[in-house]
Design a protein around this nucleic acid. Structure first.
Length: 264
DNA sequence: TGCTTGTTTGCATTTACATCA
DNA sequence: GATGATGTAAATGCAAACAAG
């Protein structure tokens, strides 16, 4: 297995940190092993993708294809090169249950491969789902954003599609949902940012005004006389207090030198 | 019991095609 | 009709979870 640090991929992830995002990601108890339980935080990902190649993955992909192709004339060479793998797979196939059949149906294979020969002969043609198909898929997605193999197969039968197509549609649909949610969250954060910026600006302005005011007048000058108490130690409010409010003197530092307390 | 290996599945990213202005 | 933008089906690679040896 090649770790991400081994290849040239460099990924910069800006996480939004919204735990509520991707709420559609629910662990399906029926789907069994392979279902991830981790919650993917929403993130804006900027990635600089280098070339990555993973031998084990490639072999695994071939294995999957061989596993799925039942008697494919065009996969014989691959199968012969992986005879050990195939024999194991065949063993499992021979003892296959309904579930295994469904799993095979939901395995990752391209349309071309599923139809028989590999992608070398026919370039992939993009299928356009009909309105009815899309509607039914949407309806299913509303009920459940993930499908177990049986549900997938059932839906595929209803739609006259391959299970793989249903699987891909659900994957893309989940991606679209997440993208939309991210956009919504982004807008929300923008608004929050604007609000906080305005608030910050307002407070800065207020602070500046207060500072100006403080320089012009001692603080206690703005307070009612009843709220002031003479400091018992110095017995005065402060030294160098200007007689005329609003006319500061250089040596007037009432706030720092004056000992007074605010009354009740 | 911990480790290794293989399998399955979801997600992120990319590609390729269809449609529309 | 050519073209760029957009939407989306499909491909690819990776990681996580799990089971079995």
């Amino acid at each position: 297995m090649v770790s991400p640090s081994d290849n040239q991929e460099q990924t910069l992830t800006l996480g939004l940190g919204f735990s509520s995002i991707s709420s559609a990601k629910t662990k399906n108890p029926i789907s069994g092993p392979g279902t991830k339980s981790c919650d993917h935080e929403p993130s804006l990902t900027l990635s600089l993708s280098g070339e990555t190649y993973q031998t084990t993955t490639a072999v695994a992909a071939i294995e999957r294809k061989v596993f799925v192709d039942q008697e494919p004339p065009c996969s014989v060479s691959v199968a012969s090169s992986l005879s050990n793998v195939v024999s194991v797979k065949r063993e499992r196939e021979s003892a296959s249950s309904d579930d295994l059949e469904l799993e095979r149906g939901s395995s990752r294979i391209s349309d071309e491969e599923e139809d028989g020969c590999g992608p070398t002969n026919t370039p992939r043609k993009k299928l356009r789902l009909t309105k009815d198909q899309s509607a039914l898929l949407e309806e299913s997605f509303k009920q459940q954003s993930t499908l177990n193999p049986k549900q997938k197969q059932a839906l595929a039968d209803r739609l006259n599609l391959r299970p793989r197509q249903v699987e891909v549609w659900f994957q893309n649909r989940r991606a679209r949902t997440k993208l939309k949610q991210t956009e919504v969250d982004c807008e929300y954060l923008k608004k929050c940012c604007e609000t906080l910026t305005d608030e910050n600006r307002r407070l800065q302005k207020e602070l500046q005004e207060l500072k100006t005011l403080k320089l012009g007048q001692p603080f206690y000058m703005h307070l009612p006389a009843a709220t002031l108490t003479m400091c018992p130690s110095c017995e005065r409010i402060g030294a160098g207090v200007p007689t005329i409010p609003g006319t500061p003197t250089t040596n007037s530092t009432p706030a720092s030198k004056t000992h007074f307390t605010l009354g009740p």
